[in-house]
C-alpha cells in the first residue's frame, strides 16, 4: 500500500475515491462544473477494466446506473443542478426499487439554466426526496477535497447497507478547488460486491427468480411497502446522522453551515474566538438525516444559518430548535457567497 500526498481537485478526488471504494460502473453526461469528474472516470475506469459510459442524457445515465446496481454492482453517476433535476425520475425509481447507488451533485446556481457559479440551492431537492413519492436519499456534504475522497467509501457503504441512493452534495467550489489529498492507494481488484447481494439479477441459477421492481398494483401492498421504507429511514436517522461541532457548549452565537460555506464559517469562528467572542459552529455532515440532536446541546444560543442559497437549510434549523425566535439567516443567491466580513458584521 502506497500512501501519498497529492494536489488534486475535488471533482477528481471524488472520482478516485469512488474507484477505490469499488465503483464498477459510471455513467454521466457533460455539465459544468463537474466535467473533470466525468473526464477522470473516462480515463481511470478503463485503466481499472471497469465500465464508463458517456450517456446520451442525464436520464439515461441514471437509468444505466439503476441497471448496473440491479445487476449487483457498485454504480454511480454525477452531474450538476440542472442535470440532477433530470435525474429525479431515476432517483425515485432507485429508492422505490431499493437499489443502492451514489449520485454526485456539484451544485451551480439556479433556477433554470442559472449560471455556472457555485451554489447550494439544491438543498431542498436533495434533502426532501426530490422526485415523486415518499422517499429520502441519504445526503453527505463534504467540505474539503480530503472529505470528498473519504466520503465516497462512506457513501457506497451506506448505499449498500440500506439499499438506498446516497447523494454527495457539493458546491462548484468543492468540485473545482485543488487541495492536498492524502491517498492510500489500495484498490480492491476483484471483489466489487463488497456486501453480498442475494437480491441482485444474476440469472436464476439454482434459486427462484429475482425481480427488481417498485410497482405494487394493490393499494394495501404499496402502503405496506412504504411503511417498510419509513422504518428503514427511521433506522438511518437513528444510526447514521453525522455532524461536526466546534465550541458549541459555551457559545452565545452558533453558526450553522455546510460545504464550502462551513469552511468560511470555521475561519470566522477561529478568528473571533481568538478575540474572546463566544462563538461556535455546527456543520451538518449528513444533510439528510439532518442532525437535529446537534441543536439540543445549546438550544438557547443565537443561531446564524449561512447558505450559498436563499433560506433552505434555515428551515431545518428552525425545526430542530422547534421555533424561529433565535434563528437568523445570512445567505446569498445566484452564485454569491456570504463573505467573512459580512458574517463578522452580522455576528456582532
Amino acid at each position: 500500500m502506497k500512501k501519498e500526498k497529492i494536489l488534486i481537485s475535488g471533482n477528481e478526488a471524488i472520482g478516485e475515491g469512488a474507484i477505490q471504494a469499488g465503483c464498477f460502473f459510471y455513467a454521466g453526461y457533460p455539465i459544468t462544473p463537474q466535467n473533470e469528474l466525468t473526464a477522470y472516470m473516462a480515463k481511470r475506469m478503463l485503466q481499472e477494466k471497469r465500465v464508463f459510459i458517456q450517456a446520451e442524457s442525464e436520464i439515461s445515465a441514471i437509468n444505466m446506473v439503476l441497471g448496473a446496481s440491479a445487476a449487483g454492482f457498485r454504480a454511480m453517476t454525477s452531474s450538476s443542478s440542472p442535470g440532477i433535476s433530470l435525474k429525479q425520475e431515476g432517483l425515485s425509481y432507485l429508492a422505490g426499487c431499493q437499489l443502492p447507488a451514489v449520485i454526485v451533485n456539484i451544485m451551480r446556481a439556479g433556477p433554470g439554466l442559472g449560471n455556472i457559479f457555485p451554489a447550494q440551492s439544491d438543498y431542498f431537492q436533495a434533502t426532501k426526496g426530490g422526485g415523486h413519492g415518499d422517499y429520502y436519499c441519504i445526503v453527505l456534504a463534504p467540505f474539503s477535497v480530503q472529505e470528498a475522497f473519504d466520503f465516497m467509501f462512506f457513501a457506497f457503504d451506506l448505499a449498500d447497507k440500506y439499499r438506498n441512493p446516497v447523494m454527495i452534495l457539493g458546491d462548484g467550489f468543492l468540485g473545482q478547488m485543488v487541495e492536498p489529498l492524502t491517498v492510500k492507494f489500495q484498490i480492491p481488484n476483484s471483489k466489487y460486491q463488497i456486501i453480498k447481494k442475494d437480491w441482485a439479477l444474476t440469472g436464476c441459477k439454482k434459486r427462484a427468480p429475482n425481480i427488481i421492481k417498485s410497482f405494487y398494483l394493490k393499494q394495501k401492498e404499496l402502503e405496506k411497502f412504504n411503511l417498510l421504507l419509513q422504518k428503514k429511514y427511521k433506522t438511518i436517522k437513528r444510526r447514521e446522522t453525522r455532524w461536526q461541532e466546534i465550541d458549541v457548549e459555551d457559545a452565545r452565537i452558533i453558526l450553522v453551515a455546510y460545504g464550502t460555506m462551513a469552511r468560511i464559517a470555521k475561519g470566522v469562528v477561529r478568528k473571533l474566538r481568538e478575540k474572546g467572542k463566544k462563538i461556535g459552529l455546527i456543520r451538518p455532515i449528513t444533510l439528510w438525516p439532518f442532525p437535529q440532536k446537534a441543536f439540543l446541546k445549546n438550544p438557547k444560543a443565537r443561531y446564524l444559518v449561512l447558505e450559498m442559497s436563499y433560506g433552505q437549510m434555515v428551515e431545518d434549523v428552525k425545526l430542530a430548535l422547534e421555533g424561529d425566535k433565535n434563528v437568523e439567516f445570512l445567505g446569498r443567491a445566484g452564485g454569491g457567497i456570504p463573505t467573512e466580513e459580512e458574517i463578522i458584521r452580522r455576528v456582532k
Binding site: 464498477f24 460502473f25 455513467a27 465500465v51 459510459i53 450517456a55 436520464i59 439515461s60 445515465a61 437509468n63 444505466m64 446506473v65 439503476l66 441497471g67 448496473a68 446496481s69 440491479a70 445487476a71 449487483g72 454492482f73 454504480a75 425520475e89 431515476g90 425509481y93 426499487c97 439479477l201 444474476t202 440469472g203 436464476c204 427468480p209 429475482n210 425481480i211 427488481i212 421492481k213 417498485s214 410497482f215
Partner: peptide, 21 residues
C-alpha cells in the same frame, strides 16, 4: 426468470447498465 422493472422509456438504458456489468 430474473427481471427488472424500468421507468417508462428507460428500458434500454437499464438493460445497458446490466449487460455492461
Amino acid at each position: 426468470f430474473d427481471c427488472c422493472e424500468s421507468a417508462h422509456g428507460r428500458a434500454l438504458a437499464v438493460a445497458t447498465g446490466i449487460k455492461r456489468c
